[in-house]
């Protein structure tokens, strides 16, 4: 077991891990970050997406020990206080159905909007295309992401 330290949702956390522990398992089982979902186990589907140093990554194909000294944001961290405009937009659009892809999708969309606050429809599709959803046909998700920008503009 090795001790690692990292920032999780703004708070310094420690964990004891084996070199072969996967990040998804450590975050879910040892640190209670259950928003992260296991779905394919090989980086194909995006359900386990978290932000590592601000970038969307697949926690099912990262060794936990690699994140020593890094910064992690999960959906729990986004939801602690007031929801983000993106989360509100998903609620307004009733975007998700079964909801299992939602945490990963929201983390990917958060990264997308951080990088590009005014994405085109094509950019939304390209930016989120690594996150699979079997229910929605994607359109309600695209609409919600595009609508965030409009809402934020309205606020200004």
């Amino acid at each position: 077991m090795k001790k690692i330290s990292f920032i999780l949702n703004g708070e310094k956390r420690n964990a004891y891990v084996e070199p072969n522990d996967l990040l998804v398992d450590v975050l879910r089982e040892k640190l209670g970050m259950h928003s992260i979902k296991y779905a394919c186990g090989r980086g194909d589907c995006g359900a386990c997406t978290i932000l590592l140093n601000g970038k969307g990554v697949r926690s099912c194909i990262i060794l936990a020990i690699e994140v020593d000294g890094q910064e992690i944001l999960t959906l729990e961290g986004l939801s602690e206080n007031k929801l983000t405009s993106l989360q509100e937009s998903f609620i307004d659009h009733s975007s998700f159905q079964c909801g299992f892809c939602a945490p990963g999708m929201i983390m990917s969309a958060t990264e997308l909007l951080n990088k590009n606050p005014n994405p085109t429809e094509e950019e939304v599709k390209e930016g989120l295309s690594g996150n699979l959803c079997r229910c929605t046909g994607y359109t309600p998700i695209i609409e919600a992401v595009l609508d965030v920008e409009k809402k934020d503009v309205d606020k200004k």
Binding site: G56, R58, E111, G130
Partner: peptide, 9 residues
């Protein structure tokens, strides 16, 4: 190649 979540790594 792949998609954002993989390309980031």
């Amino acid at each position: 190649i792949a998609s954002v979540g993989v390309r980031n790594r």
